[in-house]
Structure formats: structure tokens, C-alpha cells
């Protein structure tokens, strides 16, 4: 389970609870298909080491994910991403929802008709999809969140 590069270089927002950020990180990885549903995930301590966070925080994140039925842990075997499609769909909807909310909030002040906006979105989205096929998948939220913790 050598997934060092998969988790490396992630930085957190120091003003939000780290465990919540870890949960969100998992959700994003699932939605973007970086980790597959049903895949085993690192143990709590392994994850803490990979993300350079406190093991107790990792523990709490896992607990949260278990509560949201995002991951399942059976007995002593390592935790896995859930296979429940409902849950996965729900995450996808949740992430999309929050992203779009953020997007809308950003452009609300620009006075632009919806049609024009949709055209721009369509054009940018097509370009992004084309670029994405040539580059390895990357966590999309990363650039948006970084740099905040440095005051």
C-alpha cells in the first residue's frame, strides 16, 4: 500500500478543524475517483504519518467518516471505502453543491446574464476536461485552500 505520492504535499487550513478537512479530502478523492469505492484505506496512524497530522485527529476523522457511512470497518481488518452507491452519490452531490455555491458567491457581483455565464462555463469546462486527460489526476480543491494558513 505505497501511496506516498498520493497523499504528499497536502496542506491544511489552520483555522478549520483538521479532522473535517481530512473527511473532505477523502470525499474529494472518492468523487474524483482517486480512491475507488471498496478500496482499503491506510490505518489511522499511517494516515497521520502520511499527512503529518496528529494520530488522534486522524482517528477522529475516521470516526466521522464511519458515522457518515463513508468508510466501513469490519472487525480487525483495515477500513474500506463504502460500496453503498447512495452514500457515494450523496457525497458527489454534496461536493458539487458546495463548489457551485462557492462559485456563485464569487461571481454574484459580476453582472452577467445566466446564458452567457453558462456558455463560459461550458467552454472552460470542455478545456479543463481536455487538459485533465493529458495530466495525472490531482486533487482539485488543493489550490483553492492553500496559502490561507500563512499569516
Amino acid at each position: 500500500m505505497n501511496k506516498v505520492n498520493e497523499w504528499a504535499g497536502i496542506t491544511f487550513n489552520s483555522r478549520d478543524p483538521v479532522y473535517a478537512q481530512v473527511v473532505r479530502l477523502f470525499k474529494e478523492k472518492i468523487v474524483t475517483g482517486v480512491i475507488q469505492s471498496g478500496q482499503t484505506i491506510p490505518s489511522r496512524r499511517e494516515l497521520a504519518a502520511l499527512l503529518k497530522i496528529n494520530p488522534n485527529t486522524a482517528q477522529r476523522a475516521y470516526k466521522e467518516m464511519e458515522d457518515q457511512r463513508l468508510i466501513v470497518t469490519e472487525g480487525n481488518s483495515p477500513s474500506r471505502i463504502t460500496l453503498e452507491l447512495d452514500v457515494l452519490r450523496q457525497i458527489r452531490a454534496e461536493l458539487l453543491g458546495t463548489a457551485v455555491e462557492a462559485f456563485v458567491a464569487t461571481i454574484r457581483n459580476i453582472d452577467v446574464p445566466l446564458d452567457e455565464l453558462l456558455d463560459v462555463i461550458q467552454q472552460k469546462y470542455t478545456e479543463a476536461q481536455a487538459g485533465k486527460r493529458q495530466e495525472p489526476p490531482e486533487a482539485p480543491f488543493e489550490s483553492g485552500e492553500g496559502g490561507n494558513n500563512d499569516d
Partner: peptide, 15 residues
């Protein structure tokens, strides 16, 4: 507790 401060006050340790 650091996590508590982050979630309840939205402050970082440095803050």
C-alpha cells in the same frame, strides 16, 4: 485543545 479552538472559534493555534 487545538481542534476545539478551530471548530468553536475558527482560530488557528497561531491566532
Amino acid at each position: 485543545e487545538c481542534e476545539q479552538v478551530r471548530s468553536e472559534e475558527s482560530k488557528s493555534v497561531v491566532d
